[in-house]
Simulated assay, not measured.
Amino acid sequence: MRAAGCVFAEDEAELLLSGAPSADALAAMVERRVLGIPLEHVVGWAEFHGRRVAVDPGVFVPRRRTEFLVDQAIGLGRRSAARTGRPPVVVDLCCGSGAVGAVLAAALGRIELYAADIEPAAVRCARRTLAAAGGEVFAGDLFDALPAGLRGRIDVLVANVPYVPTEEVGLLPPEAREHEPLVALDGGADGLDVLRRVTAAAPAWLAPEGQLLVETSERQAPRAVEAFTRHGLLPRVTGSDELYATVVIGTRPATGEGTP
């Protein structure tokens, strides 16, 4: 595995040894990993925010930096519950494996949880992951996938949108660009196409004082803030140097629809 270019070959080998049910299975797993298939797809799970989350082949692998996004959402969910006196309505948009929703459900306890993704493989994976939390997972393009009854009711809307500029997708590690869905990586010319679509529609779906959280890069954050502001959301930017993570959080004003 080290000869094949696996940077953390020893650690990965331990995971494969502990997860393989037989010598033949171990050999097959090692072969798949040497061929460049992501470790998470080989073992069938990813470590995320202290949990093992199932990740099927062809499904976006949750990144550690996204744990910072989740931490922000947990805090906002708790504040929402304290303010309203009811379980928060939480939506995990572009949910992938359902990792974000699973962690939010575990941390917040009683929540009304919904998730959506455009990739069929991701929807199947997320449905299994979120079943224990009572989460409903829908297939479709962003808000088109959600039940109309959620309009104006969402307290915490987490959208882990793709934000890699199209011309930079080819610079990603082969594991990502060859084995993860392009729709989960490519954010358009400047990486913000999907973010702009989400911010344009979000005010109509958020409850008064509801929050939209989107992960982006530090250099993209100023343009992301412009998109939030343009559609009437009150933005702030926060980040983690340790995780190299940047999150833009937008609040729908307490009155009105949140649009100028």
Rank of each mutant, 00 (worst) to 15 (best):
G135I: 04
E47H: 06
A3Y: 15
L195H: 02
G187P: 06
V89Q: 10
R128K: 04
P62R: 04
L142A: 14
S22F: 10
D144H: 14
D56H: 08
L172R: 12
V247A: 07
P38N: 04
L93F: 00
R219V: 14
H179G: 00
D24V: 05
A204L: 12
E119Q: 13
A121H: 06
D56I: 01
V89D: 10
D11W: 15
V169F: 00
G191E: 12
L104I: 01
R196V: 13
G36F: 04
R230P: 00
A81D: 09
F8W: 11
L185M: 11
G239I: 06
S240E: 03
R153C: 07
A25R: 08
E167Q: 11
G36Q: 03
G5S: 08
A133K: 09
D141M: 14
T129R: 02
A102S: 08
D186F: 06
A46S: 13
G256K: 13
G134E: 02
L182H: 00
V42Y: 05
L104C: 03
E168S: 10
R33A: 01
A224P: 00
H41P: 10
D193T: 06
P235F: 01
R65F: 10
A131E: 09
A116N: 11
Q72Y: 08
L26I: 08
A121Q: 07
R151S: 03
R110N: 09
